[in-house]
Amino acid sequence: MIGMQRKWVAHLFLILGVVVTAFPLYLAFIASTHDAATIGRGRMPLLPGHYGVDNYEQAWSVGSGERVNGTPVRITMWNSFLMALAIVVGKVVVSALTAYAVVYFRFPLRDFFFWLIFITLMLPLEVRIIPTYKVVSDLRLINTFTGLTLPLMVSATGTLLFRQVFLTIPRELLEAAKVDGAGPLRCLWSVVLPVSTPGMAALSVILFLYGWNQYLWPLLITTDRKLDTVAIGLARMLGNAEGLMDWNVVMAATILTSTIPTGVVIFMHRWLVQGLIEVSK
């Protein structure tokens, strides 16, 4: 056989990779099961302690302690969940409609619209941040859920992905539906979208993580703690990362808020990988 590198060498390297990847998370988990004093002593244990339940309880429902001041994780996780969900639904709907128009209709300015949307790829939030903030503030959307999610619902990637997917659908399928008397919207709903489910699922997984992990936008748009997202809540808790603080609670919050992305990777890694590769085409 070709490329007969010894199997154990391959396993060795990959296991090393996994250890490096997992160690920071393992350490966070260990820290989340000890008390603050043990961690503050500067001799980090490598095996779990007995304070896990207390720490997670505190992170989940209080979010603050003697030397930590944050937002309860149950609030930040709920906010991030809603935010991610809104972004997924919004982006999928908005970009599917656009791609449908671009692929199946011919109309004046079609290419112009397409390029206008394509250009947004070149304008990350970071480069237009102040004027975008101003727009949202002029629309009186600061500290609102709409302000948090609506501006993130546009994406060229979604549109490009749907366009790719739609282009691979045989035209005969639609012609047949038309002969049966289906109109354009009927065709979208009953023919095009069902065939595009795998692409849509892959896109949704990526968008969900994107929404769940948002930081800069919520940092600017929300000051109200009730709207704190996961990332904002964690950053608030961490503060200046002093040696003497309730690291146990911070780490419990870190682990709790990581469960959702972790679950996504474990149970949907196939879609995640497919989505990453599809989006790049």
Binding site: T21, A22, A28, A31, W212, L234, T254, L272
Partner: peptide, 20 residues
């Protein structure tokens, strides 16, 4: 799955793990 794990986490989470 293990190698993709950090990719799925928030940048802030990454920072907290490393600062710790």
């Amino acid at each position: 799955v293990f190698l993709l794990w950090p990719y799925a986490l928030a940048p802030v989470t990454t920072a907290i793990l490393w600062v710790f």
